[in-house]
Write a protein that binds this DNA or RNA. Structure first.
Lengths: 228, 228
DNA sequence: CACTATTTTTAGGTACACCTAATCCTATAA
DNA sequence: TTATAGGATTAGGTGTACCTAAAAATAGTG
């Protein structure tokens, strides 16, 4: 028996696994997509895909991309769990703002041990979601599938709850945070304009927000039943 | 103007600076001592001493060892501050034991930002010492000199307070922790045997502890006035 | 002072993770 | 079906940080 599970892969390896998971979901990730996400060259990604396969973390076929094996998926989810728990801690206990937690957590997730992670989970009382609304994988490496869809795909007249917000862009988080468009809040969808993709929503205070296509794609929502 | 202060040196660089600071105090550290502390070869240390000098972090003369410049000292103390604050956090908020905090902090100190560090200090209410009794350098990079001396240099009949304990050996911490020989506690020195360096102390509960030379050197004490 | 033991340095090499430039596939569109 | 654009791979190279083995310098001892 080999020891993928016990030996801690380098932090680069972890970054690749997370990137593959994020861009490919269950399927295969292309070198280009992974390269873009990690801001490195495709050539480097090709090289690493080979090494990841040696390690049994991905299935890789030349010109066909790489997909996570069970080991690879487990490792990716372990890092995602760390990341999201750390983000939660940073906001709840250290007073970090919405926008700043991602970068700090990105560095920390490679330095903390599993013991640290589980003690943190304990301290935070085992949260199910992080501050951006993302689900936190459990310690045994499971993650229930998300049932939300982007606001850009909503229909006029619907009432929806914000479930999560893409945390990749600091300026997006900034904008949404200032306007109270954060997970948990309820919105009425007033208009979804096919022409330019603009979505107009009304918050509980009656305030209307016109959101461009990219913003509407960064906000994930679930339909809710009628107002009380 | 160059940018030593702003650019974050690699974690190796930081480890070297801390090692130099620990083995040399104000003076010059030999390649051998640093190599031993970091568990690497002397040849590697020679190479790094050169690079550290290029970076303006140490003064280095071949065959004479390396000593920290102002920049190097500031950087070392910044890491020491991080390390000791993290140790304090791990014990006080995550329930880590005395023995386990060092290893975890050693990895974390390279991943956290200055912002994280200062927010942590805030959360901990700006402690002056870490759980082992070591002084925590201030954010502006000053560290008041320690006024304690090893128990091995105490004299029979003295009453002393444990100020700090060397945190390098897990088994030492284990042993001392089990017996309550931790910073803050008061001891009566009963005997200091020149022959074998054994020191016999009596704690406040009247329990006697014979401590071998190495243990006595790991415990730092200050004299206290007579019993109340 | 000379010899020896210890310490330090040099020489040459490895692994990792990246890069650019050039070549090679693959899928699409004419 | 064949040309071509875009993506993927190979080839060759860089910097960091380590290693071992051999050579050189220093420090201690008779």
């Amino acid at each position: 028996m080999s020891d993928y599970a016990t030996a801690e892969p380098s932090s680069s390896v972890g970054d690749y696994l997370k990137a593959i998971w994020e861009v490919a979901g269950g399927g295969a990730a292309s070198t280009k997509d992974v390269a873009e996400r990690l801001s490195i060259s495709s050539a480097s990604v090709t090289g690493m895909f080979g090494r990841l396969q040696e390690m049994g973390l991905v299935r890789y076929e030349r010109y066909r991309g790489a997909s996570l094996t069970q080991h690879g998926l487990a490792e990716a989810l372990r890092l995602v769990r760390r990341h999201r728990l750390i983000e939660t801690f940073l906001m709840e206990h250290l007073g970090y703002s919405w926008q700043d937690v991602h970068a700090e957590a990105e560095r920390l997730e490679h330095a903390v041990s599993d013991e640290f992670t589980e003690r943190l989970a304990e301290l935070l009382e085992h949260p199910g979601r992080d501050p951006h609304g993302d689900l936190i994988p459990t310690a045994d490496g499971t993650l229930v599938p998300e049932s939300s869809s982007p606001l850009s795909e909503a229909e006029a007249g619907q009432r929806v709850r914000i479930v999560k917000v893409n945390d990749e862009s600091v300026s997006v988080l900034n904008y949404l945070g200032e306007r109270g468009l954060i997970p948990g809040h309820i919105l009425a969808v007033r208009e979804v304009r096919a022409l330019d993709g603009v979505v107009i929503v009304e918050d509980e205070g009656g305030e209307k927000h016109p959101l461009g296509e990219s913003l509407a794609r960064a906000i994930f929502v679930q339909p809710v039943s009628d107002p009380a």
